Amino acid sequence: MIDAEAFIAQHGTPIVAHDAVSDVAMGAPRPDALEDANDDGHPEDHNQHDARSHARSWARGKAKRSGRSWARGAGAKGVAASKEGPSDPCDEDACREAALRLLDCADRSSSALLERLVLKGYDETVADAVVARLREVGLVNDEEYARSVVRYCAGRMLGERGTLLELSRKRVDRELSQQVVGEAREAGVFVDAAWELGRSVAARTAGLDLQVRRRRFWAAGGRKGHSPDILRDISHSLFDEDA
Rank of each mutant, 00 (worst) to 15 (best):
A17D: 14
I15L: 06
V212Q: 11
K120P: 04
I2C: 06
L117D: 03
R147V: 04
E44A: 10
E44K: 11
D123V: 12
D107G: 15
V118D: 08
T13V: 08
P43Y: 03
C90T: 14
G159K: 01
E92W: 07
H49P: 00
G61L: 14
V131H: 03
H46W: 07
Y152E: 13
M26S: 14
A184V: 09
P31Q: 06
T205S: 09
E166P: 02
D88C: 09
D242H: 02
S110R: 04
Q211K: 12
D36W: 02
V189T: 14
A28W: 00
A99L: 03
E115I: 08
G73A: 10
G41D: 09
D91I: 14
V150E: 02
V180M: 02
D209E: 15
P43L: 04
W218K: 01
R171H: 07
E175D: 15
D128H: 11
G73I: 06
A74R: 13
A98K: 00
A94R: 11
W58E: 15
S66D: 11
A219C: 02
A194P: 04
I230K: 05
T163I: 07
V131N: 01
M1A: 15
D209C: 10
K64E: 12
D104H: 06
G207S: 07
D107N: 14
E183Y: 03
V201H: 05
C105T: 01
R133N: 12
R72Q: 13
A206Y: 00
K62L: 09
F7E: 13
K77M: 12
D240W: 00
V118S: 12
D229E: 11
S87K: 14
C90M: 14
W58S: 15
S69Q: 12
E124C: 08
S57C: 08
Q10L: 15
H11V: 15
A203I: 04
Q211H: 11
E115P: 00
A146K: 02
N38K: 00
